[in-house]
Structure formats: structure tokens, C-alpha cells
Amino acid sequence: MSIAAAMAMRTRLSALSDSPELDVSLLLCRCIDKPRSYLYSWPERELTAEQQQQFLQFLARRIAGEPIAHILGERDFWSLPLAVSPLTLIPRPDTECLVERALEMLTGHENPLILDLGTGTGAIALALASERADAEVLASDFSSEVVALAQRNRDALGLTNLQLVCSNWFSDIPRKRFNLIVSNPPYIDPDDPHLSQGDVRFEPMSALVAAEGGMADLRCIIQESPNYLVTGGELLLEHGYDQGELVRQALSERGFTQVASQLDYGGNERISWGRWQ
């Protein structure tokens, strides 16, 4: 099988994926250990028998619906290569909107203290730690296995300004006052039909769904965050496309000011925030 013939098999993914050519190229690059540019420069090159077998196995897994990130064991986020596993959410581009907003909020703050709740792979915390070397970042997750994964990502990136702790939301967070608390918590209604579609079928329900129509964890974080924020500190949350109004209401009722929301790259309300006075 040539590289060109392997690339032509993207047609098998056309009904499954929004980016079949990208999917096939990523799988193929892993098998031949070459960059994507190589695929287009040397389309006539033949795969070895071992490379072909691995590629076809990868392709079969993708056709069965398994996410590319799980097949390859990694996903880039904020230009950072992150190890992923079925224990965590796969970092998504729209979450980079939260990182962008967080960095704007930190403008003018020297040596800020940042808390990331429910860190998963560590994507948000690692992005902030990489951009703000002067920051002290603390990230938490309720699963010790997930915390270990985030620690591996931290160590691989050589970031020394990020610490991780096992905590169920605020249960084991040190009594510090942070300049910024960020979180991408579970926010999907358990009855949402999208849970049986696409990549989310392969992701842990504990990282996706929350009671009260998806609002339970968001409300918990909003309720407890003031106990961990400095005066003028801010809380920044990712939420569902249809939850912006509910999150703003919860923030305002708790006493946050300057409450607002922002759209994601798809034009949906995706992040909301407030300042604690």
C-alpha cells in the first residue's frame, strides 16, 4: 500500500468525521513516524507490512467511532502536546476561548495565584502556567489516576509553576485566596441525546454529566468560590451552549459583579465570569 492509497481511504470516514482527511493523515503519520508534509511530498512511497497493518488497525478503530485522541494517546491544546486517556475529557479547541479570557483577566497582575478545578489532562492549567511563568497555578481533580496523568503532562512540558492535588472540587484545596479560579466542569444534562453520539461515547460520564439539568457542579463552584478568592478576584467557567443565562443568574445571585459571557469559535455562549467584591 502506498501513502496515496492509504490517504484515499479517507472516504471510509466521510460519514463519521467532519475532517476525514485530517484523521487519516494523523493516523498515517503516527504509523510511519513522519510529519504531515511528508505525505504530500512522497505519495508514491510504499508502507512496510508492519506500517500497513498498524494503519489498518487504527483506521478500523476510527471507523468504529473511537476518537483520534484516544487512538494516538495524545491531543494538542494551546500548541501543547498532551497525553490523554479514556479517564479524561479530550481537550477541545473551544476551551482555548477560556484560556484567552483568563490571560486577559490576569493582565496587570504580578505573580498571580490561579486555581483550576477539575483539571483532567491539565490542559487549562498547563496553558496558563506556560504563558505566565510568574504565576503559581494549583490544579485539582477528584481522581488520583487523572491527577497522575496531568502530572505526567506537566513533567513532560517541564513546567515547574504548576502543582496538582486530588480534591473533589474544594474538599482538599488549601485555604488560599486566589486571583483567578477557572473550571471546565461537567455540565451536560444526563438525558442529553448527544451523549450517545460522536466522541463523547468514549469519554467518562463523570467528566460530562451533572445533575439539575447539567447545572449542579457549576452551582457548587459558584457557591464556594468566594471563600477562595481575593477581593476583586474572578471566577471563569466553561458551560453548555444553552446555559449562559442560568450561569450569569447564579453568579449574580451569589454576589458576583461585572458578570458577563463570551461566545466560542462556533458562535455559542461558552464561558461566563464574575468578579468577587
Rank of each mutant, 00 (worst) to 15 (best):
E46R: 13
L27A: 07
Q57C: 10
S37C: 07
L27M: 15
D33H: 13
E50C: 00
D23M: 02
Q53V: 04
W42T: 05
L16N: 05
E21F: 10
S19T: 13
R30Y: 13
P43H: 09
F58Y: 15
S41M: 09
Q57D: 14
S25Q: 09
S14T: 12
A49F: 10
E21G: 08
D23V: 01
S37F: 12
P20V: 04
R36H: 10
T48K: 06
L22D: 07
T48H: 05
Q52G: 03
A49N: 12
C29R: 02
C31Y: 09
S14V: 14
P43A: 08
D18A: 12
S17W: 03
E46Y: 06
K34F: 15
K34A: 14
R30I: 06
A15L: 12
R36N: 00
V24N: 03
R45I: 10
R30N: 15
D18W: 01
L16I: 15
K34Y: 13
L39W: 12
K34T: 03
F58P: 00
P43S: 05
S41R: 10
R36I: 08
L28C: 09
E46W: 06
L47W: 13
E50K: 09
E50S: 11
L56Q: 14
F58N: 08
S17L: 04
L26A: 12
I32R: 04
E44D: 15
W42C: 10
Y40L: 14
S37G: 02
F55H: 02
L47H: 11
P20F: 06
R36F: 15
Q51I: 06
D23W: 01
Q57V: 12
S14M: 11
Y40I: 03
Q53G: 01
C29I: 00
Q53M: 03
L56E: 15
S25G: 04
D33R: 10
D23G: 02
S14H: 07
L56T: 01
F55M: 00
Y38H: 14
E50M: 08
Y38T: 01
S41Q: 13
S41N: 01
Q52L: 09
C31D: 09
R30G: 02
Y38F: 15
P20Q: 08
S19M: 03
Q52M: 07
E21S: 11
Q51S: 05
L47V: 07
P35S: 05
